[in-house]
Write a protein that binds this DNA or RNA. Structure first.
Length: 349
DNA sequence: GAGCCGTGGAG
DNA sequence: TCTCCAAGGCT
């Protein structure tokens, strides 16, 4: 790295003093750190999830479970339902495991070292560093996707990801100051999300533009270099809407894997061809809607047929719970099922 | 290491 | 409309 890089930190911190975003989990620049519980919760919610999506969930969550002890004592099903819509549901399972580990193994307080933090479920390299810096003021090298982008441009690192990660981490280490660790980390992330954006970076507004090698070369958006991705395949399935006395049959998905642990509509297998009524939850007079539901997951697109039936109480039904349709919003359905449920409800009238 | 794991916003 | 991808972690 060039010799002037340490001044990157002072330029960036000066900018952050003036432009830091006000966020419910954040302390203003230069003030004491916020409650570690709020830092931890926000960091987990923010994993692969944008600020605008997290904010309302965060507010509701801290009102309901304001500390580690309260969350550790919470009911699993309620926690999973509260996470509905946020995605990556393993985070909710790990959040609960994490809260219980903090209570049982750490006296109800978050440890302040990266190594100890990393032993807690749901906390990896990034989150451990972020918590250590933001909640405890420790110097830590915090590298998320924003920092990767900022630093890859700053140093014009042209090695493709993920092979570039060690070089990016070293370059980040070189510009990370000993003091104001939390502010520095958050300033880098604010910069990445508002100025040094993936597409069309606003270099004219950038407080560290004078240090940027990618900009000097005239190609800031060429970094970081990313590998090409495979196209998402399409998979087909069927969702079942089984109605009885104003209630609909919901099931709980297996604890692991896609949508693991979440309440759901019954589904058949997901496969290359439409599976029809395979694995229907009951023998019934199923009506297949002419409409289908489409939903994009991370690594495939699901196209679902919509099968509905109304039964009386005398028909044998697979396991599940009858949920009042009028209160379907409170079931905590993942978005893929909430969308389908809305379509089924529209078909009832 | 590479694949799995959601969702909504931006362009 | 469609593609890309975001405050990653786990296996």
């Amino acid at each position: 790295m060039s010799a002037n890089l340490p001044s990157v930190a002072s330029d960036l911190l000066g900018w952050y003093d003036r432009h830091a975003r006000e966020l419910p989990w954040r302390a203003p620049p230069g003030t004491p750190p916020p409650d570690p519980y709020r830092v931890w919760l926000s960091e987990v919610m923010l994993q692969q999830t944008q600020v605008a999506t997290v904010r309302p969930h965060f507010e509701r969550w801290v009102a309901r479970w304001p500390d580690f002890a309260r969350l550790a004592a919470a009911d699993d099903a309620e926690v999973m339902a509260a996470w509905a819509g946020l995605g990556y549901y393993a985070r909710a399972r790990n959040l609960l495991k994490g809260a219980r580990a903090i209570v049982s193994d750490h006296g109800g307080r978050l440890p302040d070292s990266e190594a100890a933090l990393r032993t807690i479920p749901g906390i990896g390299d990034y989150t451990a560093a972020a918590i250590a810096a933001i909640a405890f003021g420790r110097r830590a090298v915090v590298v998320d996707a924003n920092v990767e982008r900022v630093v890859a441009r700053l140093a014009a690192i042209d090695t493709p990801l993920p092979a570039a990660k060690p070089a990016i981490r070293a370059a980040t280490d070189a510009i990370t100051p000993d003091a104001h660790a939390g502010d520095f980390a958050q300033a880098m992330m604010d910069l990445g999300s508002t100025i040094c954006t993936t597409r069309a970076p606003r270099c004219l507004l950038c407080p560290i533009a004078r240090h940027c090698r990618a900009l000097a070369a005239g190609v800031p958006d060429r970094f970081p270099v990313k590998p090409t991705k495979r196209a998402r395949p399409v998979r087909h399935g069927t969702m079942f809407w089984l109605e009885r006395d104003g209630a609909v049959l919901l099931v709980r998905r297996p604890a692991r894997g896609l949508l693991g642990g979440m309440r759901a509509l019954p589904t058949g297998p997901w496969s290359d061809a439409p599976p029809g009524l395979a694995d229907a939850p009951a023998e019934a007079d199923w009506r297949i809607s002419p409409a289908t539901s489409e939903h994009g997951f991370t690594h495939f697109t699901l196209v679902s047929a919509l099968a509905s039936a109304v039964i009386d109480g005398h028909i044998a039904v697979a396991d599940g719970e009858w949920w009042p349709i009028a209160q379907i919003e409170s079931a905590g359905l993942p978005t893929v099922f909430a969308k389908a449920a809305a379509m089924f409800e529209g078909m009832r009238e």
